[in-house]
């Protein structure tokens, strides 16, 4: 394992775009080359060292042998580890928008909160968040047919609206509550919600959504049988029938309204 530690040394006002902070980018580079990587702050092209202190092992490594540790409040830093294919990244602090977007593999662990578009268009790998996340986790880009296609996202806190919009594959597990319209326009994938939500699976064509807490359901879902999953009784629904959808929605029976 080659370890790289990135510490934020300044407070950030205008957010940074830091897709260069990624095990793929770091792997072949020396520490001084990493220091010189491009980071954008608004319209200014800057260097990584302008904002961060870089420590860790010298020399190059394979991506799968990379361990990157981020320390500090990264909540105003966008596009962290975008397109990451392998290795492990741990963040001790919050992260900004688009963390883990287009991620293909590896592990991203966030010990804090994440902002909007966490794991946008994710294809593989695993993201865990100890805190809450913003809107559009695991979703797609505007106008695209497909959001998250693969991989796993686990969120221990709550998630915002439009979780997994246009999801085509992979799985998202939120332990807490989820905002409006999770799993809308889904064509596949699995979403598990530990807490409450509102109008899940709007226009879902395919996929599975399981909700353990209270939820308001769309009138366009048809209730089928009661099923038992791991000792909990769920009402099973199919929908969204406005789209002749074959999505499956499970709502814990105690919570059905």
């Amino acid at each position: 394992m080659r370890t790289i530690i990135i510490r934020l040394i300044h407070s950030i006002q205008i957010s940074l775009e830091a897709e260069s902070i990624s095990p793929d980018k770091f792997a072949p580079l020396t520490l001084s080359q990493i220091n010189a990587l491009e980071i954008w702050q608004g319209n200014r092209k800057m260097k990584l060292e302008d904002f961060f202190q870089v420590d860790g092992d010298e020399g190059s490594a394979k991506t799968e042998d990379m361990f990157v540790r981020l320390e500090g409040d990264f909540s105003r830093i966008k596009r962290l580890v975008e397109g990451m294919s392998n290795g492990i990244v741990e963040v001790y602090g919050n992260v900004g928008m688009h963390a883990g977007a287009k991620m293909k593999g590896g592990i991203l662990r966030i010990m804090g909160d994440a902002s909007d578009w966490l794991g946008r268009e994710m294809q593989g790998g695993k993201i865990t968040v100890s805190g809450n996340v913003g809107n559009y986790a695991g979703s797609g880009y505007r106008g695209e047919k497909c959001g998250m296609r693969g991989g796993e996202v686990e969120i221990h806190g709550n998630a915002g609206a439009l979780l997994g919009e246009h999801m085509c594959g992979g799985s998202i597990f939120v332990h807490g509550d989820v905002g409006d319209f999770p799993g809308s326009l889904n064509q596949g994938g699995t979403i598990i919600i530990g807490g409450s939500t509102y109008l899940p699976g709007a226009e879902m064509g395919n996929g599975t959504i399981t909700i353990k807490g209270p939820a308001r359901l769309l009138p366009s879902y048809q209730q089928l049988e009661i099923v038992d999953i791991e000792g909990i009784k769920y009402r099973k629904y199919v929908g969204d029938l406005v789209e002749n959808g074959k999505g499956e929605l499970f709502l814990a029976e105690a919570q059905s309204s």
């Binding site: 109008l199 709007a202 769309l218 009138p219 366009s220 048809q222 969204d240 029938l241 406005v242 002749n244």
Partner: peptide, 18 residues
């Protein structure tokens, strides 16, 4: 949103589910 979904259901002949 729910009302529009209901209208789409009725339009496609699925009113009985509502």
């Amino acid at each position: 949103y729910e009302v529009i979904s209901a209208l789409r259901m009725i339009l496609s002949g699925k009113a009985e589910i509502l």
